[in-house]
Amino acid sequence: MKESLLDIICCPLDKAELELEVHEREGEEILEGSLTCTDCGETYPIEDGIPNLLPPDMREAA
């Protein structure tokens, strides 16, 4: 994902802003990292460049 995606996405639970933590970057693309809700504190993983913004109860089941 690109950092500019942060202007479009939010926490799926409470719609608050997300804070990005980058673990691996390739140019503009963030390949590995996490997104943490600035309100509820829930953390969402970024894997292979794809942020997984499913709520925690759907993350494992789906």
Partner: peptide, 25 residues
Amino acid sequence: PHACRAARDRGVEVVRADLLDPIRT
């Protein structure tokens, strides 16, 4: 998740989500 990977392979900016849940107002 398979669709997300397929779309990303086409160069599409993709997020894994349930419909519109994580999209800002």
